[in-house]
Amino acid sequence: MKNEKMLLIPKIDLGIVVDHIPAGMGIKILEIISQYEEIKEVPVSLGLNYESRRLGKKDLIKLQMEFLSPEIIQHISIVAPGVTVKAIKDYKVHSKVVVKAPQEIRNLLECKNPNCITNVEKHVETHFVSLGKDCKQVRCEYCERVFDLNELHTLVD
């Protein structure tokens, strides 16, 4: 039974599985990942609404690539903390990490304050610090303004 389910999207011999994505978030995470140049040519499968003991329903994404950069993992972590990133080798899970909400976010978000120096000197890396464990509110380390995470745009496009 279990094996039949696994066949719903293809098994991979070498790659990355972003698993335990809360159902409904899969497409959003795929959109985020797709922005990165290194993903552009990679074969990707998206699975939606799989049964999950932990979540009830879950989404998952399989990427036929060897390595997911820390920038991409950081980006996923701020949108969907709690997802699992697994590295697959020879069809087996070689290693896995549960992605936590970050306490610091570097060079990913754009500060919304037009007078912040990071918006004037574009070579300066942005730096935000989470104000709680859930990373819902962040503070710009430069201009010290506090923002809701979901009101900030990312620098990646």
Partner: peptide, 29 residues
């Protein structure tokens, strides 16, 4: 000239920097 280039130049001339700037976060930078 960028703000950071000004800082790197002037730091060779002095022992302590006092900075007033209209941009927010310039002190931290």
């Amino acid at each position: 000239e960028s703000f950071t280039d000004t800082i790197h130049t002037v730091e060779s001339y002095s022992d302590i920097l006092v900075i007033r700037h209209p941009g927010e976060g310039t002190g931290r930078l």
